[in-house]
């Protein structure tokens, strides 16, 4: 219990620093403080938000920014379908919980050993990140650059490394191993070829290959 909360707050704080950067970038690309804050409260999916203000700031136009951001948000739907049994049954609570379905909350939830721990991890991580991401955005949008780039602190590498730790418990069977490896390879191959937002969705093909592999092994044995 204590460990789940500690890890959630740690992730929340790291995300909060990126929230600061998001606030700075959002206002720099022409959004008002209210618009930046509204994005973190209602859109609440970091990669999409960064893509949106990044493309807007680069002069890419609102429609292009919106499309890329929507593509990046699509994977949350796949996460939600995958962890649906961990979400509350009541409509009101399910509607609230759905907003918290992001990379970090899914990763923390699915890395736990039993459904109760998974539910706790989902809520703890989701709420910690919601709080710190929103506060960070507000601070960044109001005060500007307080701490410099998170990249200078190496935080951009902390997320993939943290996700590796959360991925390891998944790799118990051949199908998951195939899904993870092929998902990563397909995504890397897709990066130079396809527009921003699309490659990460190609991870789905990793799941398809893993599933196919699992079926074949079952048929063979």
């Amino acid at each position: 219990m204590g460990q789940i909360i500690r890890n959630s707050i740690l992730l929340g704080l790291a995300v909060g620093i990126f929230g600061l950067t998001f606030g700075v970038l959002a206002t720099a690309s022409g959004l008002t403080v209210a618009q930046s804050l509204a994005m973190s409260l209602f859109t609440f999916t970091g990669a999409s938000q960064f893509a949106f203000v990044g493309l807007l700031g680069a002069g890419g136009g609102v429609t292009a920014a919106l499309l890329s951001a929507l593509l990046l948000a699509a994977r949350n739907g796949l996460y939600a379908a995958s962890i649906a049994t961990l979400l509350p049954k009541s409509r009101f609570r399910k509607a609230l919980a759905a907003q918290l379905v992001i990379d970090e909350s899914t990763a923390m939830a699915t890395a736990q050993k039993n459904p109760d721990a998974s539910k706790r991890a989902f809520w703890a991580t989701g709420l910690a990140i919601y709080l710190f991401w929103t506060l960070g955005t507000l601070l960044g949008a109001l005060c500007g650059d307080l701490i410099g780039s998170p990249d200078a602190w190496g935080l951009d590498a902390a997320f993939p490394a943290g996700f590796v730790a959360l991925l390891i418990p998944h790799l118990r069977n051949h199908a998951a191993l195939v899904a993870a490896l092929s998902g990563a390879v397909i995504t890397v191959i897709a990066v130079p070829v396809l527009p921003i937002g699309v490659p990460v969705l190609f991870g789905v093909f990793g799941a398809v290959l893993g599933y196919w592999h699992g079926q074949r092994r079952r048929a063979g044995s």
Partner: peptide
């Protein structure tokens, strides 16, 4: 299989 596949995609991207 979706979380491991999508998380490892994300790790590769990041």
């Amino acid at each position: 299989l979706l979380p491991p596949a999508l998380l490892s995609s994300l790790i590769a991207l990041q």
